[in-house]
Computed example of a mutant assay.
Amino acid sequence: MTDAPSGPEAGPGRVLLIEDEENIATAIRFVLGRAGWHVAAHHDGTTAPAAVARHAPDVVVLDVMLPGRSGFDVLQEVRRGPHADVPVLMLTAKGQAKDRDRAMALGATRFMTKPFSNAELAEAVRDLAGR
């Protein structure tokens, strides 16, 4: 787990990235950090809900496939916890309609299929944060 921030502290807000693929996590942290977001990264589904509580982010970017627990399970627990109203952008490489439907039924705010453009990701996070 990497809790170190990236980007300027005075940026638009805090993002918690929950993604186990290191190269994808690095790219997302770079894109969002360059846009001014304070980004913390977490790599494990089992402890992800605790990371949401610890970081109290403005937006969560959550991968569907994670070690320990799926992003669906993480989302379901987050929606029952103290940060239930945090916007959650779910990411997946599969992009099947059933995955999108399940994510939205569990309370995802937005669903995005990999690969996506840097601009699309930055715009989605900004929109979700209302900034």
Rank of each mutant, 00 (worst) to 15 (best):
F116M: 13
V60I: 08
F111G: 08
D99N: 11
T113L: 03
H55V: 15
L106Y: 13
L91D: 02
K114A: 06
R54H: 11
R100L: 02
K94R: 14
D99Q: 12
A124S: 15
R69I: 02
G81Q: 09
R110C: 06
N118K: 05
P82K: 14
A105K: 15
V74T: 12
A93P: 04
E123N: 14
L121G: 07
E120N: 10
L91T: 02
G71L: 05
T113R: 15
M104G: 10
A122P: 04
R102H: 11
A93N: 02
Q76G: 06
D85P: 03
A84C: 09
P82A: 15
K94D: 04
G95L: 01
P67D: 11
M65C: 07
L75C: 12
F72H: 10
V59D: 11
D58G: 15
H83C: 13
P67E: 08
M104S: 08
T109N: 13
H83W: 13
F111W: 07
N118F: 00
A84H: 15
D63N: 09
A119N: 09
L89R: 07
V61E: 02
R79Q: 09
G107F: 02
P87T: 08
H55R: 12
V60T: 10
L89V: 04
D63Y: 01
H83M: 11
L106C: 10
D73T: 12
T92W: 01
V88Y: 07
A56H: 13
V74W: 01
A119C: 00
V52I: 05
P87H: 07
G81L: 04
P67K: 08
G95P: 12
G68C: 07
E77T: 12
T109I: 07
V74G: 09
P57M: 10
T113V: 15
L62D: 02
M65G: 05
D73S: 13
D101W: 01
M104N: 07
V61G: 05
P82V: 14
G81V: 04
